[in-house]
């Protein structure tokens, strides 16, 4: 019976999380256009529904009914597979992220924990899946049979290799502090007010993580694989209809996931910033923190120019890599001294 309840619970959580994530992705596109619009002294979408709120649905319907073109020179199976890889990896990363505390179902003694899975190697899982997502971009660009697409995917591959390393290293400090790869434990250790958050102990690591995360999700100033003014959209140049929409959704889902991981690791996850605010449910705090990070991602897109491909490589290997290593060394040293 216990197993049965567990199954039901997991399925319900999966459905709810999936629905929420997809809805957030839809409204993230709206938010980005709206925020960018206001940064750029224009309105953003405002025709479709009040404040343009129905715009994501209208875009979705449009993408669905567009002609689905596969170029003759494309490698068809890979071409079809690539957007699937991208979206699946972006979504499934969310499986281990704790987005709230546990609560008891009213009227029973059944405890519901607000996360889909709580696995021992949560962080490793996240990074493994994240690397897999890059395959979507690399394969997509390569299979298009288009030189711009190929260049885009080459850039994506190079960028993945250089930034995944620094990204992985930037969180080692947090792992050392919490002595666990289990995300729920990392969050639990940050309880009791914002002065317990990891960002206080690892401020440099947080900055490194955010920089690498921007490269990981291919946003300005690191949007190399796409670089619309250079490669005319890069890896997704030949994609149309729902396949393009999948890439698009994957990018935004990835953005949410990366922001969630940053919140979990550095900003106390679902914990309230001050102890007396704990009566507000953790889900709210989690959402608020993710929103702030995402707003930052959008904001910097409206501000910065794009770096050049070789400069990004240089920055990744010659600056970030060293800095993250130094950060680990210092963290380890301090922990050794403290016992």
């Amino acid at each position: 019976m216990q197993v049965f309840y567990f199954l039901i619970e997991t399925i319900i959580k999966c459905v709810v999380v999936f629905a929420c994530l997809m809805l957030s992705v839809a409204y993230l596109t709206w938010l980005e256009r709206k925020v960018l619009g206001h940064i750029q002294i224009r309105f953003g979408p405002n025709r479709c529904g009040p404040f343009g709120l129905l715009q994501p649905f209208s875009d979705g319907i449009k993408a669905f009914f567009k002609e689905d073109l596969i170029p003759g020179s494309a490698d068809k199976p890979v071409f079809v597979l690539a957007p699937m890889i991208a979206i699946i990896s972006a979504i499934s990363m969310f499986a281990v992220i704790p987005f709230g505390n546990q609560f008891t179902l009213p009227g029973t003694d059944y405890v519901v924990k607000l996360r889909i899975a709580d696995i021992d190697i949560g962080l490793l899982y996240v990074f493994g899946i994240a690397s897999l997502g890059e395959f979507g971009i690399v394969l997509g660009g390569w299979a298009s049979g288009n030189k711009y697409g190929l260049t885009g995917s080459l850039r994506a591959a190079a960028q993945m290799i250089s930034y995944e390393v620094a990204l992985g290293l930037s969180i080692v400090g947090v792992i050392l502090l919490s002595q666990s790869l289990r995300l729920t434990e990392i969050v639990a250790l940050q309880a009791g007010g914002f002065w317990h958050w990891n960002i206080i102990y690892q401020p440099a690591a947080f900055v490194f993580f955010i920089v690498c995360a921007l490269a990981e999700i291919n946003r300005t100033p690191f949007d190399m694989p796409e670089a619309e003014s250079e490669l005319a959209c890069g890896f997704n140049i030949e994609y149309s209809s729902m396949k393009f929409a999948l890439f698009f959704m994957a990018e935004y889902a990835h953005m949410i996931t990366v922001a969630s991981i940053a919140v979990t690791l550095f900003l106390g996850g679902w914990q309230a910033p001050l102890p007396f605010l704990e009566f507000i449910p953790g889900v709210f705090w989690f959402g608020a923190k993710v929103f702030i990070l995402i707003f930052f991602f959008i904001w910097q897109r409206g501000t910065f120019p794009r770096l050049r491909y070789d400069q990004i490589m240089k920055f990744g290997w010659k600056v970030l890599f060293e800095l993250t290593l130094i950060n680990i060394l210092i963290t380890a040293f301090v922990m050794l001294l403290k016992g």
């Binding site: 750029q40 002294i41 224009r42 670089a227």
Partner: peptide, 16 residues
């Protein structure tokens, strides 16, 4: 020019 290099916000200020 700024748009080509990736800074798209400036374009709208210039056109104003």
């Amino acid at each position: 020019h700024a748009l080509d290099i990736g800074a798209m916000t400036l374009l709208f200020y210039n056109f104003r």
